[in-house]
Simulated scan of single mutants.
Amino acid sequence: MNSYRIPEIAKQYTQYDMIQIHTDLPDFPELRTRLLFAFLNENNKLSSLSELFTLATALVQLGLDTHDLVTVSNEVKEKKASRSRQLKVLAGDYFSARFYHLLAKTGQIDMIKQLSNAICEVNRLKMSSYTKMKQLKMTAEDYIHLTVEIKSQLFLSFSEVMYGANKQAWPEILRGFVRCELLFTEIFRIETISKFRDSWGYWHISQNGTREERKQLQGEEVDTTKVRTLLHKYNISSQLYQLLNTQMKQLQDFVKKLESDKLQSELFHMGEPFLRFAGEHPKVLEEI
């Protein structure tokens, strides 16, 4: 059985001086990568390829996430900011190229096609999300659904190569973990008002608030005091804790149905940070 060492292997592609000195990279997709590796290793026919497939998928995800950090406008003329923007574009292209090279040199043409189709679906979902946001038609439920689907697509593309009962379990468990991770992030996101725009809380208030409250959210200048008042009025923090708690329970039920005790143990270990976080905030959960 292969031991998990994907982040260490990926460093040979991500830790270049030019990138580290002049720009920042997004977080490595650690949770999704660990999940995919664990499931692939359950299939004897795929275990020898689990490291290759997981590394390639992590790199292409990193490439997509890096491109997402590129600002829409190129109006910034300051040399340092301009160089950072250029390197994000190049780094994203490089990570995507490495995924192709890794799979092509081992003859995994079908997997290249599979992941390429998933990339197309990711881009389609991003356009759908962007359009809803631009037209102010996004709901809080839409936000969770679309974000989870965007983050899951590359990894969902492996559903067809899963074995037996895992083939049915993989999509639900993957989405469940991604949803937990997203809700976990959203809970901390509302603590920083500068990151509040286009968050779950933002779309929830836009969906349920008064016309005046929606105008406050959509203005060019963000009034920190007013936003914090709205967060309190609509119990955004408590609702996010409730959503996370509900999702954790559903995820636990899915994991318990897996046939492999070893896989169950691995997944419960991966979910421990969410359970520990909930345990550290029992009063919040009791108030829900």
Rank of each mutant, 00 (worst) to 15 (best):
N74P: 02
N74G: 15
E75F: 04
V76S: 15
V76A: 12
V76H: 11
K77N: 13
K77E: 14
K77G: 08
K77I: 14
K77S: 15
A81W: 14
S84A: 15
S84D: 05
R85E: 01
R85F: 02
Q86C: 06
Q86S: 11
L87Y: 00
L87V: 03
L90E: 07
L90K: 05
D93I: 07
D93S: 07
D93P: 09
Y94P: 09
F95Y: 15
F95L: 09
S96W: 06
S96N: 12
S96R: 02
A97W: 00
R98H: 11
F99I: 04
Y100A: 08
H101S: 13
H101M: 06
L102S: 11
L103D: 04
A104V: 10
T106N: 14
T106M: 07
T106E: 15
I109W: 05
I109G: 04
D110K: 09
D110W: 03
D110H: 09
D110M: 08
M111A: 11
Q114M: 15
L115G: 04
S116G: 15
N117Y: 12
A118G: 05
A118T: 10
I119L: 14
I119S: 10
C120M: 13
E121G: 01
E121D: 14
V122A: 08
V122K: 06
V122C: 09
N123S: 09
N123W: 01
K126C: 03
S129Q: 10
S129Y: 12
Y130I: 00
Y130R: 03
Y130D: 00
M133V: 00
M133C: 10
Q135F: 10
L136V: 10
L136H: 12
K137V: 03
M138R: 00
M138K: 00
M138Y: 01
T139K: 05
T139G: 04
A140C: 11
A140N: 05
A140E: 05
E141P: 04
D142V: 04
Y143A: 00
Y143W: 06
I144T: 07
L146N: 02
L146G: 01
E149N: 11
I150S: 02
K151R: 14
K151S: 08
K151A: 12
S152N: 03
L154N: 02
L156W: 00
S157I: 06
S157V: 08
F158C: 08
F158I: 11
F158A: 11
E160Q: 13
E160A: 14
M162K: 02
Y163E: 12
G164K: 14
G164S: 15
N166R: 03
K167E: 04
Q168A: 15
A169S: 13
P171M: 07
P171R: 09
I173V: 13
G176H: 05
G176D: 05
G176W: 01
